[in-house]
Simulated scan of single mutants.
Amino acid sequence: MFRRRSEDSAASSAVTMTKEDERAPRDPQAPKGRPTPKRSEAEAHRKTRVSVPKDRKEAARQARERMRAEREKQRTALLEGDERALPPRDKGPVKRFVRDFIDSRWAAAEFFLPYAVVVLVLSITKIGYLQVLSTLLFMVFFVVVILDFVRIGFALRKALAERFPNGDTRGAVMYGIMRTLQMRRLRLPKPMVKRGERP
């Protein structure tokens, strides 16, 4: 008698638990009906994931190699004008237009380095009037460069407004003026237009 009652109570409790399990919401993180992956598949998936080396020296070495490869890629892009790998400060159609605008024109500032060498040589001579002349030449050239900056800035701002009326051109004029300070053959990215050519 007691055995039959205990079996009936166990069966009823099992039915109750089964119904409660069916009503309970299923965990979305544990989907049903998906076969367990084989060990070989799991190991292959684990090998394809990026593994971080446990050794800090090895991790630092790999980071240095990645940075070196990225720098070499950017240097090649600067020499060849490849837009895809240029640094962020040189990317985009606005910066490309500014470079072409500057490279197609003469600018007084690009002769600053050779001019400064001449002035320096004159200033270290022991001849008095040459020292005074070097100072005057430097001041005259400085004024000419400032006036040329103003001329180029206004012309570049107008050209940007015409070419990119709704584009973001912040910092583009200063980017162009800084490029004029470099000699044409030393500019990076390399000039892609000739002097006098329309950008």
Rank of each mutant, 00 (worst) to 15 (best):
D8C: 00
D8R: 13
S12K: 08
S13Q: 06
A14K: 08
A14L: 08
A14D: 03
T16C: 00
T18H: 10
E20M: 10
D21F: 13
E22D: 13
E22M: 11
P25V: 04
P25D: 03
P25E: 03
P28C: 11
Q29E: 13
P31S: 02
G33I: 02
G33K: 02
R34W: 12
R34S: 10
R34M: 15
P35W: 07
T36P: 00
K38Q: 04
K38D: 10
S40K: 14
A42H: 00
A42M: 11
E43P: 01
R46E: 10
R46M: 04
K47Q: 12
T48G: 00
T48S: 09
V50W: 09
V50I: 11
S51K: 12
V52Q: 12
V52P: 02
V52A: 11
K54N: 13
K54T: 15
R56P: 06
K57Q: 13
A60Y: 01
Q62L: 14
A63R: 14
R64H: 10
T76F: 10
A77P: 01
L79H: 14
L79F: 09
E80V: 07
E80K: 02
E80A: 12
E83G: 04
R84V: 08
A85F: 13
L86T: 02
P87T: 10
P88L: 05
R89M: 15
R89S: 15
R89W: 13
K91M: 08
K91R: 11
R96I: 04
F97W: 04
V98N: 00
F101Y: 04
D103T: 03
R105N: 08
R105Y: 03
W106I: 00
A107G: 08
A109S: 06
F112E: 11
L113I: 07
L113A: 14
Y115V: 08
Y115R: 05
A116D: 12
A116C: 06
A116M: 12
